[in-house]
Simulated assay, not measured.
Amino acid sequence: MRLLRNRPTPPAPAEPGDTLATAESLHVRLGTRDVLHGVDVTVRAGEVLALVGPNGAGKSTLLGALAADIPAADGVVRILDRPAAEWSAPDLALRRAVLPQSASLSFPFTVEEVVRMGRAPWAATAPEDDDRAVAEAMRQTDVTAFAPRPFSALSGGERARVALARVLAQRAPLLLLDEPTAALDLRHQELVLRVCRERAAAGDAVVVVLHDLGLAAAYAHRVAILRAGRVAADGAPEEIFDQALLSEVYDQPVEVIPHPRTGALLVNPERNL
Rank of each mutant, 00 (worst) to 15 (best):
E47S: 06
L49S: 05
E47K: 03
A72N: 10
L174N: 01
A201N: 03
G263L: 11
R261V: 15
A218P: 00
V48N: 01
E248Q: 14
A137R: 03
S106P: 05
V76A: 15
L176S: 02
V254C: 10
S102Y: 15
R171F: 00
E238C: 02
I257F: 05
Y250I: 11
V111M: 03
G17C: 04
V48S: 08
Q101E: 13
D251I: 06
M138L: 04
A220H: 04
R199G: 06
G53D: 07
L175I: 07
A236E: 13
G46I: 01
V115Y: 03
P269Y: 11
L30W: 07
Q140E: 15
F107W: 15
V28N: 11
C196G: 00
L105V: 13
A169Q: 04
A224K: 13
V256A: 07
H188L: 03
L215P: 06
E136I: 08
L175C: 01
A201I: 00
N55C: 12
E15D: 06
L94V: 00
P83L: 10
D251G: 07
P83A: 12
P83M: 08
A201G: 01
D40E: 12
L51N: 14
V249D: 02
S152G: 12
G31F: 04
P237M: 04
G53C: 04
A201E: 14
P237F: 04
L3W: 05
A68T: 12
T125E: 15
R166V: 07
L30E: 09
S152N: 13
A163V: 05
A169C: 08
V48T: 08
N268W: 04
L184R: 02
A45P: 02
P253D: 13
A232G: 14
D234T: 02
A165H: 01
G235P: 03
E113H: 00
N272V: 15
R222N: 08
A133F: 12
G235Q: 03
D18A: 15
A220S: 10
A120E: 03
T9Q: 14
A218E: 14
A172V: 03
R161T: 00
A123F: 13
H221Y: 00
A21Q: 05
H37L: 11
C196T: 07
E112N: 05
P127F: 08
D131A: 15
N55D: 14
D18K: 02
L51H: 12
F109A: 09
T110K: 03
E15M: 07
P10T: 15
E24F: 06
R271F: 15
L94T: 06
Q189A: 07
W87T: 06
Q101M: 09
R199K: 14
C196P: 01
Q140R: 14
E47L: 04
H259G: 09
D129C: 04
V249H: 09
D91T: 11
E136T: 11
P83T: 09
T32H: 13
A182K: 01
A217P: 13
D91Y: 07
D131M: 10
A183M: 05
L226K: 14
